[in-house]
Design a protein around this nucleic acid. Structure first.
Length: 314
DNA sequence: GGTAAATGATTAC
DNA sequence: TAATCCTTTACCT
């Protein structure tokens, strides 16, 4: 799935493209018919993102009424490994055209789809849903179609709060607390590579940000949390906050500093990251062949020279 | 026209 | 640790 930065982009996009509008909510595929009926015709008043969860807050009633937060009903969407939103609309409708899987190639986290039509407002008609569209949100100037989500449900404010209560601090959110991350990761007997992917420790980090931030921090993925000095945990949080904020701004995961950038016209994907998906290829910093291993069913990449293996403990 | 892989997370054994 | 769920696409034959 797109990592946390994409979810925050989606929250912004929905506010911008549909904010304040009463939306026609449907489930062309049918699996979300009940939830869609609950929200159909309601206005989208709030959007929120926490880690990899997207929340869209709807309320019934006329424009101008200021519903209490307690009256909102939230659509909670988690894209999982291959969920995706695809947008289309008239000439006034812009923004991210498609976020999330599928990707044509690894690294294509946002795909510009020929979906934004040049039709003038009023002359645009929504395209037929393509594929298994779980939810369609139709506004005045455009549509958003959701496919492949791992989670898609309508929740109350209390249920939303409960979900967020289980999530660790999010480096992208204003309320993201780095010290909380240090508390949750420090002293742990689990590998830092696992801790970064644990959404209760830090939320929003995915497989690319994991491998890349650990390389930038020169930390081996199997180093235990308790063996990472607190100052380095703080630095890791700070680096992730910077990288992920940049991801929100640009829609791309960029982790390679200018001094290490490598222009490889023959294989532009090859030098996109320091180590992610670069097994056997040279580390962009030292040239050592990148290593790969499996960590809880996911691939982790690191440079055995830049990121020294932790000493074996008995 | 089949198959594996994909930036995830939960449940069960 | 393994199975399971969500869906599309790249890359084979």
């Amino acid at each position: 799935m797109p990592e946390g930065h994409s979810i925050h982009r989606l929250a912004h996009a929905f506010a911008e493209l549909f904010g304040g509008q009463a939306l026609a909510v449907s489930s062309p595929q049918g699996r979300f018919a009940d939830g869609a009926a609950l929200l159909d015709g309601h206005r989208l008043l709030r959007t929120d993102a926490h880690g990899k969860h997207l929340f869209l807050g709807f309320a019934a009633g006329r424009v101008g009424e200021g519903p209490a937060d307690a009256d909102l009903r939230w659509l909670r969407v988690h894209l999982g490994l291959y969920g995706s939103w695809t947008f289309a609309g008239d000439s006034t409708f812009s923004g991210p055209h498609a976020i999330g899987a599928p990707r044509r190639r690894v690294g294509e986290e946002e795909q510009a789809v020929a979906g934004i039509d040049a039709a003038a407002p009023g002359e645009w008609t929504p395209p037929a849903p393509r594929g298994a569209v779980r939810v369609r949100l139709l506004g005045t100037h455009g549509v958003a179609d959701l496919t492949g989500a791992a989670a898609c449900e309508v929740v109350t404010p209390a249920e939303k709060a409960a979900v967020q209560g289980r999530l660790g601090p999010d480096p992208i959110r204003a309320d993201g607390d780095g010290e909380e991350f240090v508390r949750r990761a420090g002293g742990r007997r689990r590998a830092i590579g696992e801790l970064l992917m644990d959404q209760e420790v830090i939320s929003g980090v995915g497989n690319i940000y994991r491998s890349e931030s650990l390389h930038r921090a020169r930390l081996h993925p199997r180093r235990l949390g308790r063996d990472v000095p607190l100052a380095r945990l703080r630095a890791l949080w700070g680096d992730l906050a910077t990288l992920m904020a940049d991801g929100v701004a640009t829609g791309r995961i960029v982790t390679v500093d200018a001094e290490h950038a490598l222009d490889d016209a023959a294989d532009p994907e090859a030098a996109r990251w320091y180590v992610y998906h670069r097994t056997g290829r040279p580390c962009l910093v030292c040239g050592t062949r990148v290593s790969e291993t499996d960590m809880q069913g996911r691939r982790v990449f690191w440079c055995s020279r830049c990121q020294r293996a932790p000493r074996r403990r008995t």
